[in-house]
Design a protein around this nucleic acid. Sequence first.
DNA 1: ATATTTATTGCACAAATATGCAATAATACA
DNA 2: TGTATTATTGCATATTTGTGCAATAAATAT
Lengths: 113, 113
Amino acid sequence: MPGFGRHRRRMMGQMEDPRSRFFMALASDQRIKILEALKDGEKSSGELISILELDPSVVSRHLTMLRNVGLVSARKEGVSLFFSLGDTRVLEIIDLATKISKDWFNRYQAYFE
Amino acid sequence: MPGFGRHRRRMMGQMEDPRSRFFMALASDQRIKILEALKDGEKSSGELISILELDPSVVSRHLTMLRNVGLVSARKEGVSLFFSLGDTRVLEIIDLATKISKDWFNRYQAYFE
DNA sequence: ATATTTATTGCACAAATATGCAATAATACA
DNA sequence: TGTATTATTGCATATTTGTGCAATAAATAT
């Protein structure tokens, strides 16, 4: 009975490291779109729903996820919410990720030229 | 038949943006452990398997995912592989993520003091 | 009080991910 | 040759995430 035994199947990746959750919040086209939309300043839920073209409940959940890791903050005004970046350092992270991805693509692409 | 009334059910998050894949590669305790282990220099698969305490096949898949986004590079020596960081800028990203998470936790924690 | 508008939650289902085991491939060595 | 070691792939299964619809909550206006 090698490893962990027949019935001791291991659980999935635990996400105990807060940074895993942090990166998970960024691992989504939709959530990156939200953050890039907020670069230009505060946006209402309605505007974000129009940008993403998703059900309001889905956008609400994406925003909750971003708020849970401190990437987005919200301001209440009547029934409505207005969102903005919770930490602008995320823009540096996205910028670095863009550069690394671009450089990697260029190196990779070179094999086909 | 809920979900098929008028609109076709939407597919899951698309991951068309290469940066989503990039962040997905970072969204894992195990893969962050790998990257932090490689900070100190090249490591063999065996060493990484010992660190993660996972099946060799699982570690191989984590490494493949990191290689696919350019975060890890590999050197072959006989039957063995030796891995190192593919782009050290990832250390800046992890450092920023650590700081943002830490600051957010401190602000959040303040509500309970 | 009722109606309206906006946000969230409960639920079901589709899709993606993580893991382990077994089988296979690839390389080195006796 | 054949054997041993390491890496990857194929498959099954558990877990997690993404999505939409319906119901509910919360705040405002009439």
